[in-house]
Computed example of a mutant assay.
Amino acid sequence: MMTNLFSIFDPSTNILNLSLNWLSTFIGLMFIPYSFWMIPNRHFIIWNFILNKLHNEFKTLLGTKISGSTFIFISLFSFILFNNFLGLFPYIFTSTSHLTISLSISLSLWLSFMIYGWLNNTQHMFIHMIPQGTPSILMPFMVLIETISNIIRPMTLAVRLTANMIAGHLLLTLLSSTGNNMYMYMLLILIFMQILLLILESAVAVIQSYVIAILSTLYSSEVN
């Protein structure tokens, strides 16, 4: 029974005192065996086409300095995409709607970029804090602003993903809870609206995973 609107995001639901909701994060592993089929099916061909497009785009943003670095961001895109889509199915916990997952991903990536940048390209990192053409009197303020904007990057990445996942699920829950006392013709309109919202949420699941991957790639390219 749903005690409040946010109970659908409660990860503490358990069976025999075992919290099993977080196991939904690993359901995406079921999609991996498709790539080992002797004859590639349509699913594998389409997915391989998407990954190749992402590889070419990330390679353009990152350059060719580190071979294979695009696979980090392709894996990030795939992981978030699977979890976003799985959250649209009934009775499957949406792990990306929690800062526990999203902040762990964004913070670990950001810390690795910062440690690598400050240890290997210290001068470049200092130069990046002051935009070209900044007057001398504004330089201290620009350094402060750039430092703050750099520090809040992992939080903005995590909150963007979490807020979008929560907002869509709450809207679907609110609309579905109003159908108990409706007439038949209103119920048909409600079902049609739910289908449209579900299509919109599917698009949001793809867009948010793409945005996280692209922004992470851009943040990585700044430290080189």
Rank of each mutant, 00 (worst) to 15 (best):
S69A: 10
I66C: 03
E57M: 12
P131F: 06
I15Q: 11
F73L: 14
M193H: 05
V143A: 11
V211I: 14
S75Q: 09
L5G: 05
M182K: 13
L51V: 00
T100R: 04
L88I: 09
L196H: 11
L196G: 08
S75H: 10
F73I: 11
T147A: 11
W37M: 13
I189A: 15
G28R: 06
S176Q: 13
M155E: 03
T173V: 06
G133L: 09
Y91E: 07
T64R: 11
P33A: 01
S35P: 00
H43S: 05
A163Q: 07
N181K: 06
G87K: 04
Y219R: 06
P11C: 01
I32E: 09
I105T: 01
M165R: 14
S106I: 03
Y185L: 12
P11Q: 04
S97I: 00
F82N: 11
V159L: 13
N48Q: 07
S12D: 09
L157A: 08
Y219C: 04
I101D: 04
I130L: 10
Q132A: 12
I191R: 11
I74H: 03
S149C: 10
T70A: 14
L144G: 07
L111D: 04
P90E: 02
W110M: 08
L196F: 10
M114W: 15
L16M: 13
Q208G: 02
F9Q: 06
T147V: 06
G63A: 01
L175W: 05
E201R: 10
M125G: 03
I195V: 14
F85A: 08
I207V: 09
L107T: 12
P90Q: 04
L172Q: 13
V206N: 01
T60I: 07
N150K: 08
W47M: 12
S202C: 12
L99Y: 13
N84A: 02
A163K: 10
S69T: 07
W118M: 15
G68W: 02
I101L: 15
F26R: 02
L23N: 06
L20R: 00
F6P: 03
Q123T: 07
E57N: 13
Y91C: 02
L171T: 09
W22T: 01
T134H: 08
A158Q: 04
L5P: 02
I39S: 14
N181I: 00
V143G: 05
I166H: 03
N17R: 15
